[in-house]
Amino acid sequence: MSWLLANLDMVLSLTLDHIWLSVVPIVLGFLLAVPIGAIANRYHLVRGTLVTASGILYAVPSLALFVLLPSIIGTQILDPLNVIIALTLYAVALMVRTTADALADVEPDVIQSAKAMGYSTWGRLVRVELPLSGPVLLAGMRVVAVSTVSLVSVGALIGVNSLGYLFIDGFQRNFPLEILVGIIGTVVIALVFDGLLVLMGRFLLPWSRITRTNGRLIVVQDDPVVINP
């Protein structure tokens, strides 16, 4: 405990680094993936290519990507940008597919009726198809959030500071408490992000929680499965 109190400043600053390094890829990943996913859903040829490409990308180990990026895009080896870009790519890879699938799953009846009412293609996408994909997008973002938070730690191996630094340092000094603090901190951040996403879902997708008391049961968000590349 005394170690934690003595190093509180460092732990807090690493926590902030960790949060920052996770938030940017999560938000950017979403903003980039949704339009790409929409394009993938619209043009079938593009879809195959994009889905395959993102599948392959997702299979590249994160450490390899962190190390390779500087030579590909010319950043400094210690630049946090490497981690941010790499994790954004993972987020995009996961969400493009999720978005395309979610859009493809929107009830054809609803699309036809939106068309019949006089929505333009663009209006229909933004006002009808994307909102209706909301629950699936949310489930995808919960996976992205949790996996991004955990992947940020790996960046510590290439010298980009985050709570992951505590694992490495604790391991090298054979000091389990430090490792434990790192793990707990990471898990807490992941849980908070997840909770925030769920709250956003409640607020933005009130309709998706409605269940019928009699007969057909509708919706309710899936619990995310966490996958680490």
Binding site: V110, Q112, S113, A114, M117, V128, W207, S208
Partner: peptide
């Protein structure tokens, strides 16, 4: 927008 359209299963917007 100027023609009413009603379909089976109503096609209402669930959201």
């Amino acid at each position: 927008r100027g023609i009413g359209y009603v379909m089976q299963n109503s096609g209402l917007l669930p959201h």
